[in-house]
Structures are given as C-alpha cells and as structure tokens.
C-alpha cells in the first residue's frame, strides 16, 4: 500500500513539476525561505505559540541577511513590531531603529511612525494603500469611519493591526473590537482573539455592563490559553 502511495506521489509530483518546470521563474532561495519563515512567524505569534514564533523569526532573519538587503531586513523587523500591535502587545521595534539610518527609502519610516502611533510623522501617501482610508479616519478621529475602513480591508492581519492601533489610541468602540475578534477567530489566531476578548470585557466593565463582561470572561475561560 505504501509502495502504491509512493508511486502515486511520484506521478503526482511529476505532473505538478512537469507543468511548472518549463515556464516558472526562479525565486531566490533566501527570499522563498525567508518569506515562508516570516509567514510562519506571523501565524505562530498571533496564535500564541511564542517560542516557535521566535524561532521562525530568527530563521527568517538569517535568510534575509544572506541577501544583504537592509530594506527587506527593515520590513521583517517592522513586521514583528506590527504583529505585536495586532496582538495588543508593546511592539519590539528596537532592531528596526538600529538599522533605520541605513535606509534610503522613507516608506519604512512612515510605516514605523504609523504602527508606533506617531501620527504626526506619518506621510499618508507613503503608507501601504490599504491603510490610507483607515489612517485618514484615525486622524479625523471618526470611529464610524475607522470601522468602515476596517471592514473594507482585504488583509485580515492589516485589519487586526489597524484595530490594535485604534484601541491603543483610544479611538474605538464595541464594533471595532468585535471586528478584530471575528477576524482573529476566523483565522484561528487564539492569542490575538483572547486579547481582544479581554479588551471587549474591559470596555463592558467601563460601561458598567457587568453581565456582558461576565459572558465575555466565560468565553475566555472556555478557551483557556493553556490547552
């Protein structure tokens, strides 16, 4: 049976590779592997597997460093900083600051200012396109527009990062948090989900809605982070 499976896998691989072999452009090893590790890092970090996330991030950095591309290295450091914002944690941006002087492009600095909440230093035109309506709403201070911008975001991670920024800057309402909860829940990002549930609970408590706060706490208990 296993031999049969092996032959099937070989046939399968042949089919896939035959079809891809001739007309595919080669992706450099460091980029392909670095990208995969960075993707794993995001998923693991947001899910709460911090130890594994840390390993994946280190592996990604090792790969990126092989290319000597400081701009990509900066993007990787900023990614770590941004996913921390998404998980409502304090962003670790120190490594980015160490290399920022080597960068020629201002895009990274704008992004850094954006995720660290330094709105005055953000050049809206240099922000990734998906964040622009959100940033505009954040600057105006309109929670309704922020929620509308969050809803329109295609990338789930960007949506949660933006929600995290709104919460950190105190420009949010119940809908903002619920949108982040739904996104984290759909993606299976457990740690992030719990953090936003805690934020929702805190909001209910501040509003004096004790029963609703308790229900949220029960939901948090039901999916205890330990198991």
């Amino acid at each position: 049976m296993m031999t049969g499976r092996i032959s099937k896998v070989i046939i399968f691989s042949a089919a896939v590779l035959i079809l891809t072999g001739c007309f595919s452009k080669a992706v450099p090893d460091w980029q392909s592997t670095g990208f995969s590790h960075l993707e794993s890092f995001k998923k693991e970090f947001l899910s709460g597997d911090d130890e594994r996330a840390s390993r994946s991030f280190e592996k990604a950095i090792v790969e990126i460093k092989k290319s000597g591309r400081v701009d990509i290295l900066a993007k990787a450091y900023l990614t770590r900083c941004a996913v921390a914002v998404a998980a409502l944690e304090k962003g670790e941006c120190g490594e980015y600051l160490q290399i920022r002087d080597l960068l020629q492009d201002r895009k990274e600095d704008t992004y850094y200012a954006f995720i660290t909440g330094n709105r005055g230093k953000v050049d809206e035109r240099l922000l990734p396109e998906g964040y622009r309506p959100f940033f505009h709403a954040l600057t105006v201070g309109s929670v309704a527009d922020i929620n509308k911008a969050l809803e329109a975001m295609e990338s789930p991670l960007s949506r949660v990062i933006a929600a995290g920024l709104s919460i950190k800057q105190g420009i949010f309402d119940e809908t903002t948090i619920i949108m982040a909860i739904d996104t984290a829940s759909y993606q299976g990002w457990k740690k992030t989900l719990v953090r936003y549930l805690e934020a929702l609970k805190a909001l209910y408590e501040r509003n004096g809605e004790k029963a609703r706060a308790e229900r949220v706490q029960e939901r948090i208990n039901a999916m205890s982070l330990k198991k």
Binding site: S32, G34, F35, A86, P128
Partner: peptide
C-alpha cells in the same frame, strides 16, 4: 523539497517580503 517547490511557484507579489 519545499524549497524546490517554492522555487517553482512563479514570482508572485504575495511571495515578496513586505510589511503587513
């Protein structure tokens, strides 16, 4: 093997390293 497979995936935008 994963590396080999990755290399066969055409250079697409989503495989570029970018800020989230």
């Amino acid at each position: 093997l994963l590396k080999d497979i990755d290399k066969m995936i055409p250079m697409k935008k989503e495989r570029e390293i970018n800020v989230p």
